[in-house]
Design a protein around this nucleic acid. Structure first.
Lengths: 206, 206
DNA sequence: TCCGTCTACCTAAAAGATTTAGGCAAATCG
DNA sequence: CGATTTGCCTAAATCTTTTAGGTAGACGGA
């Protein structure tokens, strides 16, 4: 009876690796026990349930992703930061598809609030600092950026773009460009020498 | 032995209702059999597997959603159509959360291609017609719109916006406004009397 | 109306996942 | 070195998935 040294943290990390290999929805307590060479019941000393295990994997992935994004945007600002921010998300999804799915696991609100979700929105706000967007527009922009990157990646991975010959990377770059322009046009105090608001800017917000 | 009259179609529809009630990931062949008052094995005469059942529910939801969107945008153009298009997606997700999740079920490429996914991208292209955007920008825009609406809805439902007091509906309206401006600035042949391209438009695409 | 065929639903059963209860041995700490 | 804690165990109940094969009701043809 050799002790393997299971902990909730190790289970979450191993679960993340398993998710990358076989898909997040194929991650089960049984499969994880097999991977550690222990009996299924042993894992229930460390996680409360299958749902608890998935939650831990999700939190692990969110944390890891936040670290990556933080690294990517460090020392950058403006469009440069926006592009690095976007690339960090997309690269993570490509390198770790299972973990990315895990990061999208539906968490109950208080669990989500306690996790790295807050870091993600703070980093998004940091990106927006260069664009000088006041509230409540800043919050709107945070939500849009979160949505647009996640949504694009999600649809891309679901094969939703496969039927058209246009390169996905080009679409991504086009989108980042467009968002940069959009955000510059939402600036609360536009600089006089560059990027004044577009004439078409609606008057509904701000 | 009363015959209930099971068909793959009825199972898909009932599965969709079940998904709305208990969540798409709680939809199982067993649960659906209970709902019909028949034995589990009976359902396997109509669907090949649990995965097959979920695929059918997904296709059903995609079709229904496409119908709704088509209805919503009929007779509209420009920003009016864009807003109606966006609202149709969001309303569907609010009214039928389980079906909306089903519509995001990962389908293998050929199944997706045979389903209503094509209608969705065609309708998106129809929205863009008013903005007069040429290829490949049109494809980029289709992908961005698909991504942004899906992503926003997905994050909203995951509770990702709950920690900020700003009204989600306002953010949604702000986003639709912004996208309208963005698309007008991407016009290939700008009209002379309104909405010229923003000065900040990058030269990378087109 | 009776018969043959089809098929919708059945019973039975195997295999795997989830979860709980209780036990033994290894690690740890005085 | 002994007591306690803890990590992994066996055992067992419940549930889901899936297959194999059976029965009875529906339906068309004579």
């Amino acid at each position: 009876m050799v002790r393997v040294g299971l902990t909730p943290q190790r289970l979450a990390r191993a679960g993340a690796e398993l998710a990358d290999e076989v898909g997040f929805d194929q991650v089960t307590v049984s499969a994880l026990a097999r991977r550690f060479g222990v009996k299924v019941a042993s894992l229930y000393s460390h996680v409360r349930s299958s749902h608890d295990l998935k939650t831990r994997i999700a939190l692990f992935a969110l944390e890891e992703l936040a670290d990556r994004v933080a690294d990517a945007v460090a020392g950058r600002a403006g469009k440069d930061a926006l592009a690095a921010f976007a690339a960090a998300y997309r690269d993570y999804a490509r390198e770790h598809p299972g973990r990315y799915d895990a990061a999208r696991f539906r968490l109950d609100p208080e669990t989500a609030a306690a996790g790295a979700g807050v870091r993600h929105s703070q980093m998004t706000r940091a990106i927006l600092r260069a664009y000088d967007i006041g509230e409540p527009d800043q919050t709107h922009a945070v939500r849009m950026l979160g949505g647009v990157f996640h949504g694009f990646i999600s649809l891309e991975r679901a094969g939703g773009f496969a039927h058209t010959p246009v390169d996905t990377q080009e679409s991504w770059a086009w989108m980042v460009d467009s968002l940069d322009v959009l955000l510059r046009n939402r600036t609360t105090h536009p600089p006089s020498d560059e990027a004044p608001p577009a004439p078409g800017r609606p008057a509904t917000s701000g």
